[in-house]
Design a protein around this nucleic acid. Structure first.
Lengths: 223, 223
DNA sequence: CCAAAAGTGTTGACTGTACACCCATGT
DNA sequence: ACATGGGTGTACAGTCAACACTTTTGG
């Protein structure tokens, strides 16, 4: 076995960018232009610049690939198998980002590797070990929903109870009881009703709510 | 700002090695022999060898520094501030390891940087950002206790209910009710009584239990 | 008037917590 | 005999899950 110190693996970041669109949880994928895995779909990512933190690199990737104003970014896990990249030993620090669909300033530009949101239910074959990263990210997101207030990063500032509940249902992939959901969520004291009413839909108007604080919070008990 | 691709940070691993000894949760520290932070206490760690995974490097470090047969190893988080190491940009992938005190083959050898177990209540000043890593590790360990069966890695094969409960109490740093603890733990169906009895102490002999499976398990509800 | 989502309480099951005494052994 | 941890059950409180109907608007 060849052992040699100070020959570090190359370091990249890859970012799983989640958003809710329609009735789906979606992630952003780009189409690779270069080898390896040319023309395959992949998570947006890239090599670390000199003296750049992985978090800074993630923001850079997000901005460049998705034009997204991110409201939440979290490190997930470092994937470091020496065989995950055919070019050699390249480790990646995986992040997940949450973006309210309203905050996306997103143009599907061919010259930018054709960034496209895919429903997590219909993910194409991905380059590298990106499917593993995605699976890990979804698991983390589901877990975080249940004991933190991360959901606020996927919602607009003002939202109806129905939107809130839908977001939970879409991510957890199961129906929740309307009355129990409202009761529990109100007890958490995370959101408050505003005086505003959402009219103009073809049903009874709904009260709009907002988060009391937009700081991240961990809760003892939740769902 | 100087930006340059393909100039990766150096990569290390650092391992928080937990064990229970006496009535304390302890971690292994070594005394640095070289600069930077010469003669300060630090977590055992080291640079990745060529084509070595971080997990392999962690096992190597464990074996060399602690002579420990590790029953549990888990990646925690990657710390990557460019300023955490005065020599330059060195990122570290932090791991935590759990070792049953019985499995330690541990000699406090001066020539091996004087490895010493310290109670987490009395940690000296640590090199680099190792205190942050330790704080993170303790938080993760406490969380994992409550929804997995990791505790098995800190116990001998056969143990009394009292040892089991003590282990929880020491790590969570609070007293638990004896009757409720026994009731809940038995309902989990993780352990079974053996026919063996621990005699020779100066009290009523205690039944010895064992884990039904030593594979890691996640539980819906726990503590 | 019809369709669609908004909004609202009660009950029974279950889970968690608090709490005190006798037992078997070694010294 | 006494000190030490071993071992056991009950009752109350709090939380969770199941469940259906009326309201308000737009079309």
């Amino acid at each position: 076995m060849t052992k040699k110190l100070f020959l570090p693996p190359a370091t990249t970041v890859d970012v799983v960018i989640f958003t809710i669109e329609g009735n789906d949880l979606k992630i952003l994928l780009i189409r690779r232009e270069n080898e390896p895995f040319r023309r395959q779909w992949a998570l947006p990512g890239g090599f670390l610049f000199k003296n750049e933190t992985a978090e800074q690199a993630s923001y850079r990737v997000l901005h460049k690939k998705a034009g997204a104003r991110v409201s939440y970014l979290e490190q997930l896990y470092t994937f470091d198998s020496p065989f995950r990249d055919p070019r050699g030993h390249v480790l990646t620090i995986a992040y997940m980002a949450l973006v309210s669909h309203k905050n996306l300033n997103f143009t599907k530009r061919k010259e930018l590797q054709n960034p496209t949101f895919y429903s997590v239910k219909k993910i194409p074959k991905l380059a590298f070990d990106h499917r593993n990263i995605l699976v890990y990210a979804i698991k983390r997101l589901r877990a975080k929903l249940e004991y933190t207030n991360v959901v606020l990063s996927l919602l607009p500032k003002l939202f109806t109870f129905n939107q809130l509940q839908k977001t939970y249902e879409i991510i957890l992939n199961r129906k929740l009881d309307k009355r129990n959901f409202r009761k529990k969520f109100m007890l958490l004291k995370l959101i408050r009703p505003t005086l505003k009413i959402l009219k103009g839909e073809r049903q009874r108007p709904a009260r709009l709510y907002q988060f009391i604080s937009r700081k991240s919070a961990e809760l003892k008990k939740f769902f």
